[in-house]
Design a protein around this nucleic acid. Sequence first.
DNA 1: CGAATTTGACCGGCGC
DNA 2: GCGCCGGTCAAATTCG
Length: 311
Amino acid sequence: MNSSSWVDSLDLNASARSLQLETPKEMNGSHLVVFGRKLSVKEETGALVEELNRVHEENAKLTKMLTAMCESYNALQGQLRDLMNRSSPEKEVSPTRKRKSESGNNDNVVVVGNSESCSTDEESIKKPREEIIKAKISRAYVRTDASDTSLVVKDGYQWRKYGQKVTRDNPSPRAYFKCSFAPSCAVKKKVQRSVDDQCVVVATYEGEHNHLPPSQMEATLGSSRCVSLSSVPPGSATPVKSSAGPAITLDLTKSKSGDEEARNHSKPKMDSPEIKQCLVEHMASSLTKDPNFTAALAAAISGRMFSTKSN
DNA sequence: CGAATTTGACCGGCGC
DNA sequence: GCGCCGGTCAAATTCG
């Protein structure tokens, strides 16, 4: 998509918004003073009407672009879901305790069980009591580089390491993590290399997150942010150090059963016109909150008015 | 300088 | 009761 056209449209759109908001106050008197010049009400309203028409056109253009973007986003999401559905069944069928992914991709995660899907898991049969006490235990197998000792599993959440231990059954250390994104979220994660295959890292999750992953929060709350990227450095927009910035991150801590809910939760319903309208307004409002933007806007407006009057 | 990580100490459960 | 082991705490250290 042409970014410059985006910026242009938004700039004009927001300037229109600003004009709409501020002009009634200015027009209380019979004359408007611009840079020391007195303009008649006729002149002023004529210019404003003209401006308003132009702004309406820009608004329509912008709405179209947003609609197109939403549609392509939905299409992409559908494709991703298809891809996930196609690749996940064969992995879950694997009867062995350790599940390997076929590719060497570092972030290739295979999730095994929470209370439902781990019913066939050997360990869950051995320890049914533990299963009852602990709300949700799921396990993820991640294929990583054998030389990589970081024990980092990129799952979209923000973790704080609070301990590391070498256990008896496994020479490689086990790292303990707590969810650090929300103080009220008590989810824990244990990460340890597999005894059999040092390339595979086993991540055990205990409990359920009571919040969306930071990356998804970005996607749902920060729709305006992708627009304001031109004025805000991208680095400052991402709270997650380990994850790859604002890229789409999948919540892989949930098994298939819990997936539906997560999907409904994470997928912004872009279909309804109300949401689209809301998105547009959200974008405009966050733009007008940006001091850099408002300063540039003020300069643009005054410059435009000045040039219009001097014609 | 504040936040994140490391690492040794400590604690509780369990088996002998 | 004792020792082992997994899990957690918290002071020290590192990093951005």
